[in-house]
Each structure stands twice: as structure tokens, then as C-alpha cells.
Design a protein around this nucleic acid. Structure first.
Length: 494
RNA sequence: GGGCCGUUAGCUCAGCUGGUAGAGCAUCGGACUUUUAAUCCGGUGGUCGGCGGUUCGAGUCCGCCACGGCCCA
């Protein structure tokens, strides 16, 4: 056996070709990674400016431009060449004629590869075929690419590679780029709407000594100097409520939560959540506000109220349906009001639906399971499910007419939970009892500092959390949360 | 955690009941002064995800492992 020669490996050969050109550029006195190249306008901006200009018009004006971007295609024709220059969002054709360039510039051009960043000076014109182009006079290498791009026509298809090397996915799949542009617009739109409604954005701890505000396993870390275990937050809820105690009457936080649970098409260990708290609001008002907020975002970002999501069309036209959890179960199953009134009959129904650990569940937990198994997957158009059982809602205020039910709703669309909100419990004694009951049942500690804050007085408040990743999934027609997050969690390779 | 499916050239993909691994793009060489998935001619490039097994012979059959996808819990 011969010794292993890496230069003989296929990718290595492609890289070696590019490195040889890199050296040749240096030999010609060209810095392949210069510090700057001033441009007056982006490729996209130039396109926008001259797309409407005809051949004669450009001939008369002869616009001189200076632009930069990545080479995405080269079409050589002997003594003339065409190339496509991209700024990510748009591209423009370059036209290079050997007789228009000095020898050194032509040599530089011959040492370019697909994927290289170049700076260009030239004149805007239209080719015979009518393509808006830049006749190049000067050419500068801005960054030599040493590895090849994915195939130009099909892009990068391998789902794993797309997530692991997102930059290649974004480069070669316009649809993927669009997903994350929409995501950015969604986040921006939400911020603007909340600020317009008088909310103030705040930042509360990501590292918490007690991980409260939700039921989920936390990630643990350790602070050395304090010699203290800290938890990555599973929710900002308890800190945001402390702020309402402190007199900030409308606050929101739009940032990451961390939950140490399974990974699926709808769950990533770190995910983005909007939480907002509104003093003197209740869950009825929050439903109205949610319609206005999210309905407005959908119309602004998608430009329509109806949108395709997989095999479904989701209709965001307002008003959205409001159903109690009980009514939802009754509407989407064969169960009767009598079934839901009797523990034994509920257990029978739960068994038929393959609900796990039935015996250890509270009545409320069982009801919620029945809802999840029957109605939830069929909540395609946005629907508020209201009036949750108290025993699975430790931070929500009871309904005056039924102390076992709380003023809480979740918003569903596409069969997914999008939002969770309630009229916040602000009775400190009741809150302590609920937290103690939860700690006894599920383990964990009571956040005494939070209860103490309530003892100082929290105004009646409505609070809500909205899952941003799932919202983006709906607005971009993605079936997996992984495709709505730039860098989703994956198992490390090798 | 369980079931099913996938992993072949840098990328996108073929490869039938086991018989010396293919195409397109990219790359390299050549032709070409208005092309645009440019075109034409000629090349290079593979431990077929990994390890083990069955077989005269394995990309193909079997087992285990890794990573990913879908479904279930």
C-alpha cells in the first residue's frame, strides 16, 4: 500500500486548484484578502435603480458603478466572458471583454473561481439579449474562496447539511433565505407593535437560581465565584411579574428560553419566546390584543390572511374562534358532558386514547390530555382554547364562577400551541399554596423571593407567552422547527 | 425509548434478482467577442457513512454502530 496522500483526495484536489490560483494572485501582486473596498451601492440597489432603464437610456447616461459581491457563475466565450455577481439578495451580470481590460486585470479574472468575492468598476449597459449588465473595467479580488459551492441549479438538498452548514443553505437556496428574512420581519413587526401599544422591552436573567414559571427540566450550570448552581431559564415569567410589582405596567421580553427536553419537529432545546405583562388587563383583553397583534403581523409580513401550511390552508381572518377546553373536547370527540364529569369515565376515555400514566394524573391533567389527544391536532385555523383546569395552571387566577377552572387560554393554529396566557394570580397566599402543591407533586423549590414580591402587591395583570419559532413555521410553510431556526441543535458529527 | 426509511464523486442524483461504480453540474485542458442552467470536444476525480459477517465474489444480502428524516411513546 502506498502512503496516504491527502492531495490525492478529491475535495483536496479542488482546494489545491484554488490555492494554486491564490498563490498566482499573490505572485501578480494582488492581495487576495484586502481590508476594504468602498462601494456606493449594493448589487440589489443597482438592480433596483437601473432595472427600468432601457438600452438607449443607459447608452446615453453610461452610469459608472462600483460594486462588490460573490461570483456565482462564469460563462466564458474566449475573448469575452460573462459572470454573475451576487450580494446575497440579488445578482447582476458582469461583462468582461479582454480588449477592454489591461493584461493584469484579465489575468486576475482568469484566476477567479466560483464563490470568490470580487470588487468591480464599470459601466451599466444592456446586452443584446436585454440583460442588465456591468461592462467591467477594473477588477479586485476581495476574498478568495478555497472551497467549492453547492451545485448551482439544485442548491443544497441534504437536510442535515443544510442545518449544519446553514451558510451554504442560505447561499444556494433562495427559499431558505426567505424563511429567515420573514423571521426577521416577524420579530421586528412584533417589537414595533408592542412599543406602539406602550410596552417597554426589558431583559431579565437567563441564569436563575430557581428555574420557575413553567414545568420543564432545566439546563444546569455553575457559577464558580459564588459556588452556586444556576439554571438556564425555562421562562422569564417570574421576573417579568416582579417588574409589574416594581411599577413597570407594560413590559415585554423577546428572547431565548431553554428546556432540557426532547428534540422534535416542534421542539428545539433553546427557543424564542415573547412574554409580555400588562397591568390591569385580563385574559379577555389579552385575546383581543393577541388577535390584533398576531393578525396584524400576519397581514403585514405575508400580505394576506390566508396562507398555505403543508396540506392545510390556515385562515387568520379575525375574529378568531374561542372555545372552552371542555367544549373543544365535546366538539372533536364522541365524549359527552357526562363523560367529562366522572373520573372513571374520563380514565376509560384516556385509556382508549393511549394517554400515559393515567392513574397519577389530576382531574385537570386528565382533561388537558383528552383535549390534546382529540381536539388539539384539529385546531388548524387560529383558535383560543379557554378556561383551563386550575391544577395545571399554578400562576393563573380562578374563574369567579368555578374555582377549579382558571382564566387562562392557549392559542392554537396548525394544530400547534402558539401562545399561553392568563389573568395572573396576584394573591400571594394563594400563590404560595399553589407553588407548594406543585413542589410537593413535581419536586423543585418554591421561589420565595417571587412570593415576597407578590406580598408587596402586584396589580391585577394579564400575561402571555408567544412561541416565535412556531409562528415563523406557520408564516413560512415549514413543517419542522429546525427549518425556522438558523442553527438548530444537532448531534455533533465525528 | 420503539418502528420504518435514508447515507454512492465537492453538489444533485442513477445503479434491477450479488459479477471490475455511472450521469449532470463543479473542476482540469482545448475551441468560441453578447451569453445567461451558454454551447462543443477531451480528461481528472470514489475505502459506495463506519465496523464485522455470509459468499469464489458485496454499493447490492445479514448484524452492530454513527448521523439524519418520518411516525409512535
Amino acid at each position: 500500500m502506498e502512503s496516504r496522500d491527502d492531495a490525492q483526495q478529491p475535495v483536496e484536489q479542488l482546494i489545491a486548484n484554488r490555492r494554486a490560483k491564490l498563490e498566482a494572485l499573490k505572485a501578480l501582486g494582488h492581495e487576495p484578502y484586502p481590508r476594504r473596498f468602498r462601494v456606493a451601492a449594493s448589487v440589489s440597489a443597482l438592480r433596483a435603480r437601473y432595472d427600468g432603464s432601457g438600452t438607449a437610456e443607459l447608452e446615453a447616461e453610461r452610469p459608472q458603478v462600483r460594486l462588490a459581491g460573490r461570483l456565482r457563475a462564469i460563462r466564458g466565450h474566449g475573448k469575452v466572458s460573462f459572470a454573475d455577481l451576487s450580494d446575497g439578495a440579488g445578482q447582476i451580470q458582469l461583462y468582461l471583454r479582454r480588449s477592454d481590460l489591461d493584461d493584469s486585470a484579465w489575468k486576475v479574472f482568469e484566476l477567479l473561481d466560483l464563490g470568490d468575492f470580487v470588487g468591480v468598476e464599470g459601466t451599466v449597459f444592456r446586452t443584446r439579449a436585454g440583460e442588465l449588465s456591468v461592462a467591467v473595467r477594473g477588477l479586485t479580488v476581495l476574498a478568495k474562496a478555497l472551497r467549492p459551492l453547492p451545485e448551482k441549479y439544485h442548491g443544497l438538498a441534504d437536510r442535515e447539511a443544510r442545518a449544519r452548514q446553514r451558510y451554504l443553505d442560505l447561499l444556494s437556496n433562495p427559499a431558505s433565505r426567505e424563511v429567515f428574512e420573514v423571521r426577521s420581519r416577524v420579530v421586528s413587526s412584533i417589537r414595533r407593535r408592542l412599543e406602539a401599544a406602550g410596552f417597554m422591552e426589558v431583559e431579565t436573567p437567563m441564569m436563575q437560581p430557581i428555574a420557575g414559571g413553567a414545568a420543564a427540566r432545566p439546563f444546569v450550570t455553575h457559577h464558580n465565584t459564588l459556588d452556586l448552581d444556576l439554571y438556564l431559564r425555562i421562562a422569564p415569567e417570574l421576573y417579568l411579574k416582579r417588574l409589574t410589582v416594581g411599577g413597570f405596567e407594560r413590559v415585554f421580553e423577546l428572547n431565548r428560553n431553554f428546556r432540557n427536553e426532547g428534540i422534535s419537529t416542534r421542539h428545539n432545546p433553546e427557543f424564542t419566546m415573547l412574554e409580555f405583562y400588562w397591568a390591569y388587563a385580563d385574559y379577555e383583553l389579552l385575546m383581543d390584543f393577541t388577535e390584533e397583534l398576531l393578525g396584524g403581523v400576519v397581514e403585514e409580513v405575508v400580505g394576506a390572511a390566508k396562507l398555505q401550511w403543508g396540506e392545510h390552508v390556515i385562515d387568520f381572518s379575525r375574529p378568531w374562534r374561542r372555545l372552552t377546553m371542555r367544549d373543544a373536547i365535546l366538539a372533536y370527540s364522541d365524549l359527552t358532558p357526562e363523560d367529562l364529569a366522572d373520573r372513571g369515565r374520563m380514565e376509560t376515555a384516556a385509556r382508549a386514547l393511549d394517554v400515559q400514566r393515567i392513574a397519577e394524573r389530576s382531574d385537570g391533567s386528565l382533561l388537558a390530555e383528552l383535549y390534546e389527544m382529540t381536539a388539539e391536532p384539529r385546531m388548524i385555523d387560529p383558535t383560543f382554547i379557554m378556561d383551563f383546569p386550575r391544577d395545571i395552571s399554578p400562576f393563573a387566577k380562578s374563574r369567579p364562577d368555578d374555582p377549579d377552572t382558571v382564566e387562562r387560554f392557549e392559542l392554537f393554529a396548525g394544530g400547534m400551541e402558539l401562545a399561553n396566557a392568563f389573568t395572573e394570580l396576584n394573591d400571594p397566599d394563594e400563590q404560595r399554596r399553589r407553588l407548594e402543591a406543585q413542589a410537593a407533586e413535581q419536586g423543585g423549590q418554591v421561589d420565595e423571593d417571587f412570593v415576597r414580591a407578590l406580598e408587596h402587591g402586584m396589580p391585577p395583570t394579564g400575561g402571555e407567552g408567544i412561541g416565535i419559532d412556531r409562528l415563523v413555521m406557520l408564516l413560512t410553510n415549514q413543517q419542522s422547527i429546525r427549518d425556522a431556526i438558523l442553527f438548530p441543535q444537532l448531534r455533533p458529527r465525528d
